[in-house]
Design a protein around this nucleic acid. Sequence first.
DNA 1: CAGTGGTCTAGACCACTAC
DNA 2: TAGTGGTCTAGACCACTGT
Lengths: 237, 237
Amino acid sequence: MPKYEKISNEIRRRIKEGLYSLDEPIPDEISLAEEFGCSRMTVKRALDVLVSEGLLYRKRGHGTFIVKSAMLNGLVNVVSNETLGLTRLLEGRKVTSHVITFEVLFPSDEVASHLCINANTPVYHLIRLRNVDGEPYVIERTYMPVHLIPGLNETVLHGSIYHYMTHDLGLTIAGSHRKIRADKPNELDRQYLQCAPDDPVLELEQVSFLNNGEPFEYSFSRHRYDKFVFVTVSTRR
Amino acid sequence: MPKYEKISNEIRRRIKEGLYSLDEPIPDEISLAEEFGCSRMTVKRALDVLVSEGLLYRKRGHGTFIVKSAMLNGLVNVVSNETLGLTRLLEGRKVTSHVITFEVLFPSDEVASHLCINANTPVYHLIRLRNVDGEPYVIERTYMPVHLIPGLNETVLHGSIYHYMTHDLGLTIAGSHRKIRADKPNELDRQYLQCAPDDPVLELEQVSFLNNGEPFEYSFSRHRYDKFVFVTVSTRR
DNA sequence: CAGTGGTCTAGACCACTAC
DNA sequence: TAGTGGTCTAGACCACTGT
């Protein structure tokens, strides 16, 4: 683990435990550099992490301060904008999957363009219902190029595709582009998510890509509106 | 404008215009440093910006590449996770505001805790309907401590509060913590957003804070589901 | 092995703030 | 004026990738 990460972890811990006052700046960068026995640039980088988490803000010519609302709202523990499969997202709760559709087909124009492949490249088309502690939670419709994720089968689909990709195939997920919207329930939502006709769903459309740049997944995850909140932090440049 | 920002803008332009191949790495950091007449660290920082925008990814020992799906999906122009008032968000379209409620009151426990104030600190409570090109688009319920935003009046409310804060009061907005969820329409949504009983709404709950650390706004923005998509980028560390 | 990005240093100067 | 963070430099060494 790099030094700047150790430092940011340590400072995050101090903030959580209330070791720094909310009304004064935390120690200045040069003092922190001396304390941690490193250069000022390394401290700055460590603080960058916490600023981007919405935990700290800086005021030029004044100092670096703790964001009060982050403290009092328990956001200290929220890791935002993660690219996590559902299985890891809800650690500690029992996630099961019911496979509704699992087939291979040629992609539509829309799917092909989002996955940056041509119309002759086979893709998996799969629909899964994910249950948390036995209750329907989210239904996912996913398209993935077959050649990127070889060997997908029902056993994998009942567990975590992300785990299969990272552990068994040795792939690395780099990130994703996401769109979040609200929608009316469709046939599948009503049937599997047990949505009432007037229950909205929270849809997350995303294109995820590997660390070799290939988009490997184009998916629509539709969540029960009463069981999912998307949390994020926004900071000015 | 700092040098690293000029460089990231220039490289973003080159990516947009297709001047770099999608199948090869872009020039390495040392070459770019020579081209732009700066140190390698400055180039690295410029590229950091584009990586965090989801436009580039790096592969250690290999090079820096363009994210294909970002290119083909027109995401080059999306600035994600901005803290913008609606007025700026929809530049070029006509945004009008209808003030539904504008009053001063003592905050509830929930509001006080999110704004990090005590129960005796007066807050504005305002509800505004925002129309875009004459059509109802979003209804906002906002709480703001009076002492942070003095002089708020109906004239300001019909325009942009963010503009008033930044230009007239000289305040700087630092960022916000956000939650996004889907919900059923309530009475106000049906009346002002003209939601049908089964039209969902997309709710954005946020606590925004100034660059002096004070939370200045606790708000719930409820968007028509057919007129709003929240776009974001997620990258692995 | 050479070439890439990842980290880190020890300084420098600047812009801004408070006093 | 002193102290803060913002930027930038010219190097250094390391980790990882390909040949």
